[in-house]
Amino acid sequence: MDYTISIGSNEQRRENMELARRRLTELFSGIRFSEEEETVPLFFHRPNLFSNQVACFASDNPVEEVTACLKAIEREAGRKPEEKEQEIVRLDIDLLSCDGTVYKPKDLKRDYILRGLKQLL
């Protein structure tokens, strides 16, 4: 199955993005990453910039298992549910699509994701 994910952080961005890339590379051989891009927050009032990146990989693992791996990496970076209200995103890794099934249609329309996808094609 072919997976597309997005990775983002607005807190300790460099360290958390590196952690995400390292863990994802360990889990999914052959993963490819777009260039990391700095963006302004879309919905937050907190002024911290985001680092964002898109990645693609193939895996025989089912969607539920891949999603569980992504959420485990977020927790490893220290992400806590209560921080969402404070607009702190240590690490956010979202499944955008798998084999043509789109899980985050609004995200797939964002400029930085479109640019990342173009780099990966």
Rank of each mutant, 00 (worst) to 15 (best):
K109W: 00
T4W: 01
N10G: 08
C69F: 12
F28V: 03
K106F: 07
L117I: 07
K71S: 10
R110E: 06
E11N: 12
S34K: 08
E11T: 14
E15L: 09
V40T: 09
Q12H: 15
V89F: 15
Q86N: 15
T39D: 05
H45C: 04
R46M: 05
V102R: 09
R115T: 10
F43G: 14
V40I: 03
G78C: 13
R13H: 00
P105T: 02
T4N: 01
L117P: 08
S9F: 10
I5S: 07
K118G: 07
P41Y: 01
Y3T: 03
E26V: 01
H45R: 14
E85C: 04
T101S: 00
A55M: 06
V102T: 11
M1E: 05
I113F: 14
G78K: 13
R115E: 09
R110I: 08
L95I: 01
D2S: 01
P81W: 10
R14W: 02
Y103M: 03
P81K: 13
E37Y: 08
R110H: 10
L121V: 12
K118L: 08
K71G: 07
I31D: 00
P105R: 06
L121T: 13
S9G: 04
K71C: 05
Q53F: 00
E83H: 14
P105D: 07
Q53I: 01
L49I: 00
S51P: 00
I5D: 05
Y112M: 05
R23F: 04
E35F: 02
R14P: 00
E85L: 14
C98K: 06
I5W: 03
E11L: 15
T39G: 01
K71H: 15
E35N: 13
R32A: 14
A68Q: 13
E36C: 10
